[in-house]
Write a protein that binds this DNA or RNA. Structure first.
Length: 491
RNA sequence: GCCGAUGUAGCUCAGGGGUAGAGCGUUUCCUUGGUAAGGAAGAGGUCAUGGGUUCAAUUCCCAUCAUUGGCUCCA
């Protein structure tokens, strides 16, 4: 017998080799119907995994994050299987669960599906699901796995397997489908009752622009038809809150293709709204000891070359602006930083003058990739509420915390409740792409971490997201459709 | 920039090889003690732009531009 401890602390005895499903049955048949996956001693297990030793067991249903993940990951297997029925030559790559649903990246070669093919794939998925096929895990040696995928001429899977550690490779089978997989599946396909393919997109293999582009099929599935209907209604409801729709209806802003892509035109009502917002922000800044400055919309190319921005972002700038004089080159200002530094350089300061805080509503222009433009959230001309602080290393912590305070005050005043702070640090595996000494980086990184901690921020650390010249603290908010946007940055 | 979708009246959208439709809005008039009300008449579109195929294109094909879902990028 083995002793199984449940999350409520109760301990039950089971025969050795009992499965999480057996445990679920011992609690109630309702739970047994609903249980999707489980965690045993901090490892994800299938509901059919035999338990051989004493331990802690948590059962997950669709209501749990872990349950959804297993459900959607399993649905991705199902989708891949359905896709292969129509596109037998398609090469599968990876198919994970995501926040809302799942996707599978597939190399279709010449004949990729379009959204007109969604229906038949969905229908096939439901047909397969109704077969109530069990998900079964099995192991294969690395060599055999490599041979398998080489014989199938699937370079993507070969690459994946080559990067795995030596030893047994796990596969997951259901019906006539098998896929390389770590595990974490639902008991059988039958509990997938509703399926919808939501979109189709190109996605680079391993997220790398220089690698082949695959076709990514997005989908979502539920254990009840009603849940799918509700989800789709929720999406419709969220679309009503889209700022682009509101901007049009409320006559706040517009775009004109005669002016140019990503260059918003503020209508009278929008300009009034913006003025109110700017006044509110300026008041907060002045109260916090900032001095307002104003810098021009253009600057000599050399200014940005010196700052290092040109090398990194020159190609993404509007440049150069030619003048009647031969050899002169100007850029439309892509960032305010070098301008504020020149303002600081206007005269020598004593350390007793520090900190000096400059703030500006600085309008900048960036040649963003056309596919990246999005309403007012990603544009080619926009105004930054931008500030730069010149201080001594000893003042850094206090200054940093004071900036966090302003951000929190503004967010609170504007009603942003659901946000988190992302600490963006260097990519530890690729330190060459950053400027400055290791020592200064470490100082700056620990200063951000320290200040965020002291302010009690809800943070997560992301490596590789730092700017080339320093780490950042990014405030991320979600839009009505759950997409994350960077709304404020301290660096 | 890449993959996909879309571009028809002010707005939301239907249609489809033979010179355009609906609802809402709008204009004028009528009705109505109550106003996101009813009725009548009307205005408004070279069906994104430029090529091509065709006797004929808004409808098919190609390109461009813009919008949009993702990917990549995001100072």
């Amino acid at each position: 017998m083995i002793k199984i401890t449940l999350p409520d602390g109760s301990v039950k005895e089971f025969a050795k080799g009992s499965t999480p499903m057996d445990v679920a049955y011992s609690i109630s048949s309702g739970l047994a119907r609903a249980v999707i996956s489980a965690k045993f001693n901090d490892t994800t297990v299938e509901t059919s995994t035999p338990l051989e030793i004493d331990g802690n067991l948590t059962l997950f249903t669709f209501n749990d994050k872990e349950g959804k993940e297993a459900f959607w990951h399993s649905s991705a297997h199902l989708m891949a299987q359905a896709v292969l029925k129509f596109y037998p030559d398609a090469k599968l790559t990876i198919g994970p669960a995501i926040e809302n649903g799942f996707y599978y990246d597939v190399d279709f070669g010449e004949n990729a599906p379009t959204d007109k093919d969604f229906k038949k794939i969905e229908d096939k998925m439901i047909e397969i699901a109704r077969g109530k096929h069990e998900f079964k895990k099995r192991a294969l040696s690395k060599a055999d796995t490599l041979n398998l995928y080489k014989s199938e001429k699937n370079p993507f899977k070969v690459e994946l397997v080559e990067n795995l550690e030596d030893g047994d490779i796990t596969f997951c089978d259901h019906d006539d489908f098998t896929d390389l997989c770590r595990g974490g599946h639902i008991p059988n396909t039958g509990i997938i009752k509703a399926v919808k393919l939501t979109s189709l997109a190109g996605a680079y293999w391993r997220g790398d622009e220089t690698k082949p582009q695959l076709t990514r099929l997005y989908g979502i599935s539920f254990p009840k038809q009603k849940m799918l209907t509700e989800y789709l209604q929720m999406i419709e409801e969220a679309k009503k809150r889209d700022h682009r729709k509101l901007g049009k209806e409320l006559e706040l802003f517009t775009f004109s293709n005669k002016v140019g892509q990503g260059l918003p035109l503020w209508l009278p009502k929008g300009a009034a709204l913006r003025e109110t917002l700017e006044n509110f922000l300026k008041k907060a800044q002045k109260k916090a000891g900032y001095q307002m400055v104003i810098s021009p919309h253009i600057g000599q190319k050399e200014l940005y070359v010196t700052s290092g921005h040109y090398e990194k972002y020159g190609e993404d700038s509007f440049q150069p602006i030619n003048t009647p004089k031969e050899g002169e080159e100007f850029l439309l200002k892509p960032m305010n930083c070098p301008h504020h530094c020149e303002i600081y350089n206007n005269k020598p300061f004593s350390y007793k003058d520090l900190p000096i805080r400059y703030a500006e509503f600085g309008t900048v222009y960036r040649y963003e990739q056309s596919g990246e433009l999005h309403g007012l959230t990603r544009v080619r001309g926009f105004t930054q509420d931008d500030a730069h602080i010149f201080c001594t290393p000893e003042q850094l912590n206090e200054e940093f915390k004071a900036v966090i305070d302003i951000v929190l005050y503004v967010f609170k005043s504007l009603g942003f409740k659901d946000f988190n702070a992302q600490i963006s640090l260097r990519d530890p595996n690729n330190k060459e792409k950053y400027i400055g000494s290791d020592e200064n980086w470490e100082k700056a990184e620990s200063a951000i971490i320290e200040a965020s901690k002291e302010k009690g921020l809800d943070t997560n650390i992301v490596y590789g997201e730092a700017a080339f010249y320093g780490p950042k603290l990014d405030f991320m908010v979600k839009d009505a459709l759950g997409r994350t946007w960077q709304l404020g940055t301290i660096q």
